[in-house]
Computed example of a mutant assay.
Amino acid sequence: MSPDRFPVSIEGRDLELSNLDKILFPAAGFTKGEVIDYYTRVAPVLLPHLAGRAVTRIRYPNGVDGVHFFEKNKPGGTPEWVRLATLPVPGSTKSRETIDFVVVDDLPTLVWLANLAALELHTPQWRIGADPDLLVVDLDPGPPAGLRECSAVAVLMRDRLAVDGVAAYPKTSGKKGMQLCCPVSGTQDAELVTAYARKVAEELAAMVPGSITAKMAKAVRPGKIFIDWSQNAAAKTTVTPYSLRAQEHPTVSTPLTWDEVEAVGTGAAEPHHYRPYEVLDRIDEHGDLLNELLVQGPELPTS
């Protein structure tokens, strides 16, 4: 066996880790071993948000400065113990096209993906075989707007959703924006959830047209927050809470408290992009701030 390869047993599953000293984030000197360590330590709060969902991975085999690729289908050499779900190709008009998606229900599968340099994990708003149990709005800032402006809009969105009895939970995207995640009933289809998210986004854009847009066109976005309601389409995925992001330095899609969001939005605190070690400290302090996403939410109004 190569000295760069290490057989391990995790929860009764045998797998082989490789090239643990390989640097995947050159600017930070952050190695594949550290990626695996982070995902192992964050697994108790991450796995419930992955469970039962078809996972899209973004792999960076030569680090964040190298070529990367999206991967939906199972990779070659997938261990026989990895759970797969054969589902239609997202967005395909050919009903017979299918993909063998990986489902990450346990720590061995998570570590196996981390060893493949699957730095980013993205999931849909539905669990396999069910309607959406999440409504997600992506708050995407058009420069010079940034995380501060996103935070202010997040508070407006939270308050508007609350009128309909919908609770919203914030997280950073790990890149330039943030997302609000809302548990919903799981009894209404993606088209209805998308229509509702669009209606609310357009209401807010009409209220504050100088700061918010609900239009996709990039030409109208500079200086505004685009409320991306389309994240709820059946074929869309959103970065999973606690996933790493492939930035120059490793960042994490980090759950926030509303006090933190309000402080940034009002200028009382500085915007912050959280690193893996900070997120692990936050989990020790707060637990999973998105735990309520795992509880069934309300039905959305249909008019």
Rank of each mutant, 00 (worst) to 15 (best):
L116V: 03
L134E: 13
A154Q: 12
Q125E: 15
A145Y: 03
R148T: 12
A145D: 09
E149Y: 04
A152M: 12
G129Y: 06
A154D: 10
L135E: 09
D140N: 06
L139E: 11
T123E: 01
P141K: 07
L156M: 01
M157F: 04
P143M: 10
M157G: 01
P132L: 04
C150Y: 15
I128W: 02
R148N: 07
H122G: 02
A145M: 11
P124Y: 03
Q125K: 12
P144V: 02
Q125I: 15
D140L: 04
D159C: 15
Q125M: 05
L147D: 14
P143F: 02
D159Q: 13
S151W: 07
R148G: 15
G146F: 09
R160G: 03
L121V: 08
L156S: 03
P144M: 00
S151V: 05
D131M: 03
D138T: 07
D138F: 07
L119W: 12
A130D: 11
L116D: 09
L147S: 04
R158M: 00
W126L: 04
G146D: 13
T123N: 00
D159A: 14
L147K: 09
L119N: 11
A117R: 11
P132T: 00
A154L: 15
D133W: 15
L156K: 08
W126M: 15
P143W: 00
A118I: 10
P141A: 12
E120S: 07
W126D: 11
